[in-house]
């Protein structure tokens, strides 16, 4: 058709991202994944997070935590305005990256194995396809995070409606922080998903990489502590421990680490995508 104007790369990438979202939200497989996610979070919300409001702000429990972990290690966390949001913060900080290892595992693996890429690369460039898919998976995780935050807000409102505004403010910062944390994990999974023949294999590669790099870095730190201090920042999630005992905008203090990691991983992924045989 002579009058067809090919889409711009941005437009095509957004179309692909929206398509990924639709695929997850409206396919049976995606719905099962969402239901599993919802169930896991329902349990977390109903038990530890709901109970947090009872225990976390009681002076005795605060004293106990400060005694066990040290006031410097939990002081900021205990000063959150809404206890539910503080517990959600700690849970999300570790659980969402773990979810990301599984949610992002099929960014490319299945398509590559069944050859569906061959249909797509005749219509969009490999770079557009790569960034479109990664954006799509970030959008999926953003929706899961928003759903979790909304559910937590409902719990807060159920306990005390006067805390809803404060909780919403915390929620926005939690959202921004967690999305920044997820960026390098999603980019890493994009590369592993390109390498693997199935989503499961990509997740296994991720676990092996994260566990292996921790072990290797542990060994290096024994012999070359200086080198180990540098190498530890190369692994996604390296800054997570530093983020637990933070509050509000101070949580963004280490945002540069995951953003840099994501940038480097995305460039590596784009380069790999351009060279891979389909």
């Amino acid at each position: 058709m002579d009058n067809l104007t090919p889409r711009s790369s941005w437009n095509a990438a957004l179309l692909l991202a929206r398509f990924e979202l639709k695929k997850i939200l409206f396919s049976t497989r995606g719905m099962i994944g969402l239901a599993t996610f919802a169930l896991a979070w329902a349990l977390l919300l109903w038990y530890p997070i709901r109970q947090a409001s009872i225990y976390l702000f009681s002076p005795d429990f605060k004293q106990l935590l400060e005694g066990v972990f040290g006031a410097a290690n939990v002081g900021e966390l205990l000063s959150w305005d809404v206890a539910e949001m503080a517990v959600l913060w700690v849970a999300a900080l570790y659980l969402f990256p773990i979810f990301s290892l599984f949610v992002g595992a099929d960014q490319f693996a299945s398509d590559k194995a069944r050859g569906s890429f061959r249909f797509l690369t005749l219509r969009v460039s490999r770079t557009t396809l790569f960034f479109g898919r990664v954006t799509g998976y970030l959008l999926i995780q953003a929706i899961l995070l928003i759903l979790t935050l909304v559910a937590t807000l409902l719990l807060v409102a159920y306990r005390d409606t006067s805390l809803v505004w404060a909780a919403m403010g915390s929620g926005v910062l939690v959202f921004i922080n967690i999305m920044i944390v997820l960026a390098p994990f999603t980019a890493m999974m994009a590369i592993l998903s390109l390498r693997a023949n199935s989503a499961r294999q990509a997740s296994i590669y991720a676990v092996l990489f994260l566990a292996g790099s921790t072990i290797v870095n542990g060994i290096i730190s024994y012999y070359l502590p200086g080198l180990s201090n540098i190498l530890q920042w190369l692994v996604p999630g390296a800054q997570l421990d530093m983020m637990i005992n933070t509050k509000g905008l101070s949580s963004l203090a280490v945002a540069a680490i995951p953003l840099l990691q994501a940038g480097v991983l995305l460039l590596l992924g784009r380069s790999y995508m351009a060279r891979i045989a389909l």
Binding site: T28, D111, R114, L120, R123
Partner: peptide, 26 residues
């Protein structure tokens, strides 16, 4: 092209996939 051994996504209906291809073409 009709590539050898390439298959469409088994989880999505055919119209959805072909419409995506068409939209990507403009």
């Amino acid at each position: 092209a009709l590539p050898q051994d390439a298959r469409l996504d088994p989880n999505l209906i055919i119209a959805t996939q072909l419409e995506l291809f068409a939209q990507l073409q403009g």
